[in-house]
């Protein structure tokens, strides 16, 4: 069960209130008339499928109904950060690799995950509800 921090409601809520909507930061081709079949196919069907850090879009479907992004590890299921639409992730596969090399402990991973990034205190705090 994920325990997800909604960046709009500013609260940790249970997984069932949310819905995953696939890879984040996809851009529709700017000039559809002059887009080749190859580019259309790539845009429509080809997605990142990493073992590790993944940026994905979620919707707080029974809460504020707004879309936002999550950076999550697809193997440990650890949620590293949540951030609103239009923003860029602060944690990527590259920064995560550097962090590991420097021996910095990431947020607690595992099955029962709390949406948190170690750098951000506000996100790390459990809300009493």
């Amino acid at each position: 069960m994920f325990y997800i921090y909604c960046p709009y409601c500013k609260e940790h809520r249970e997984e069932e209130e949310f819905h995953p909507r696939g890879q984040a930061h996809l851009l529709r081709p700017e000039d559809p008339e002059n887009t080749s079949d190859e580019e259309w196919g790539d845009y429509l069907f080809f997605r990142d499928n990493p073992r590790g850090i993944h940026h994905e879009m979620w919707v707080h479907s029974v809460g504020c109904r707004k879309f936002f992004n999550i950076t999550r590890n697809t193997v440990t299921y650890e949620i590293l950060e949540t951030y609103p639409m239009g923003e860029q992730p602060t944690i990527t596969a590259e920064t995560e690799r550097v962090r590991k090399e420097q021996g910095v402990q990431a947020a607690d991973g595992g099955w029962q995950t709390v949406g948190a990034r170690p750098e951000n205190k506000a996100l790390n705090e459990e809300t009493s509800s």
Binding site: M1, F2, E15, E16, H19, P20, N49, P50, R51, H54, E56, R72, T74, V75, T76, Y77, W111
Partner: peptide, 13 residues
């Protein structure tokens, strides 16, 4: 489960 995952386990909901 609707999200990507390589951990061989599913969610309780």
């Amino acid at each position: 489960d609707g999200y990507l995952g390589y951990g061989q386990r599913g969610s309780y909901p």
